[in-house]
Design a binder for these strands. Structure first.
Ligand SMILES: NC(=O)c1ccc[n+]([C@@H]2O[C@H](COP(=O)([O-])OP(=O)(O)OC[C@H]3O[C@@H](n4cnc5c(N)ncnc54)[C@H](O)[C@@H]3O)[C@@H](O)[C@H]2O)c1
Ligand SMILES: NC(=O)c1ccc[n+]([C@@H]2O[C@H](COP(=O)([O-])OP(=O)(O)OC[C@H]3O[C@@H](n4cnc5c(N)ncnc54)[C@H](O)[C@@H]3O)[C@@H](O)[C@H]2O)c1
Lengths: 215, 215
DNA sequence: AGTTGTGAAATGCTTCACAGCT
DNA sequence: AGCTGTGAAGCATTTCACAACT
């Protein structure tokens, strides 16, 4: 197994995509899949697929292909999806609630286990997904005892660092940051960004009308 | 100006980040900013900031720094945020409605102009942000006449291609795909992916407990 | 003195080409 | 024959180092 911090992030992202495609194909009863079929299902080149597998020593049979169930299991072990992870959402606003109600996490062994907010008007309310919004002050080391928690930051940008610090202080060292604010993290913690407004800006850039009449 | 398809996407994403930081600093009355201050605000290295600017010929004053207002204007022109873009949401579910209600697009000259769904029970309902859900069948070339529309795909994965095709057929050639399904696009169209479940999977990978007891 | 702007080096990632297995 | 697995090449992006400017 390669050193965990020498692994290309793009490879991990694609592995998650293969995983999903394999779950789907397995359900459809597929028994064999070639790298180019997997590639097609994820919109990626077949070489790339094989390189990714090769990186972790995931094997198929030359001349034949891959066994979907087995490969899925191998990828799950690589991505640590063979064990459950809990998602703790901080910020029960529109985005936080959409996440909490999302039904697609189960297939990845991910489960939203708690939703926290600071607004007294929201605390105690039941939301989609069946959870009840809890006071962010009740976020303590006991929230995630011996479990594998991942924080989801869906607070306003100016609260992002504070909310992140709460998560760190409680032993949650993996955070997906949906706010546009950058997060300072202690050594050993890992914060990834999932801001999508910049993605819209990229699409704005590709506007075909190169000229625009200024006032 | 460099060829529009020779531009590094990471540069565009960072440009959007600088843009946001500049808007904020401008509001706080900042008159001068150095590349290292901008870097800090976005969690990026100062060299990277200057390289990005240099790519588009955006200039500051050596020994002094950058004028926030002027720089913001320049970045806006590069990203085409000097003109308004309309966001058309297809799929008025949890995520689509969260997007529709999001108040942060205005600063980028982006505006959600329509929300479409196929569910008769949803059509006609007023949602957060003030818009009314429309029948996806009413999505025609007139939806976006001479305007600059960007599609946001927030339908279930198995409807993604169909919904995308509808957008293409109506002249919307820029799409942000929030589903896990890959999209086949006609030449000239540009589809970007904003799936965040893979991001959670990346964080799962960085689980510190390397051993896990299997049953 | 302090900060920008940029070639050149280093690193990271993807694609190619093909040897090797079944 | 067909498909996998992987070094080597190629391309993209980041970082370095420093000259140039104010
Ligand atoms: N909604 C979107 O589509 C969208 C799009 C892009 C980015 N974002 C980003 O995602 C974040 C959340 O967006 P949203 O639209 O859900 O906002 P929102 O205002 O609907 O929700 C924010 C929630 O955080 C809670 N909160 C505030 N301070 C808190 C604290 N210190 N601790 C715990 N909870 C706190 C608020 O009570 C509120 O319920 C924002 O940073 C926004 O920039 C959202
Ligand atoms: N909610 C999340 O947090 C989340 C997280 C990760 C990925 N996603 C992805 O985002 C997408 C939307 O997720 P969601 O949670 O909002 O789902 P949702 O089920 O709440 O909403 C989907 C909406 O699309 C509508 N729809 C279905 N077919 C349509 C069609 N052909 N044309 C127009 N509208 C149609 C449905 O009526 C529904 O309102 C899914 O693909 C999901 O995988 C969502």
């Amino acid at each position: 197994m390669p050193e965990t911090d020498r692994v290309p992030i793009p490879t991990l992202l694609r592995l998650a995509c293969y995983y999903r495609a394999l779950v789907e194909q397995e359900q459809r009863g597929a028994r064999r899949l070639s790298s180019s079929e997997i590639a097609q299902l994820c919109g990626i080149s077949a070489t790339q697929v094989r390189k990714d597998f090769s990186f972790f020593g995931l094997g198929g049979k030359p001349g034949v292909g891959y066994d979907p169930a087995q490969l899925r299991g191998q990828i799950a072990r690589v991505l640590k999806l063979d064990r459950p992870h809990q998602i703790v959402i901080v910020g029960a606003g529109r985005l936080g609630q959409a996440l909490a109600a999302y039904g697609g996490f189960g297939a990845y062994n991910l489960q939203v286990s708690g939703v926290f907010d600071s607004d007294p008007a929201k605390i105690g309310k039941r939301i989609g997904g069946g959870l009840t919004i809890q006071d962010v002050k009740k976020l303590t080391p006991k929230t995630c005892p011996g479990k594998r928690c991942i924080g989801a930051l869906t607070v306003p940008a100016d609260q992002a660092q504070r909310a992140a610090d709460t998560l760190f202080s409680v032993g949650i060292y993996r955070i997906l940051n949906f706010t546009p604010a950058p997060i300072e993290a202690p050594a050993g913690a890992i914060v990834r960004t999932a801001a999508f407004t910049p993605e819209f800006a990229v699409l704005a850039f590709f506007d075909k009308e190169t000229h625009y009449e200024h006032d």
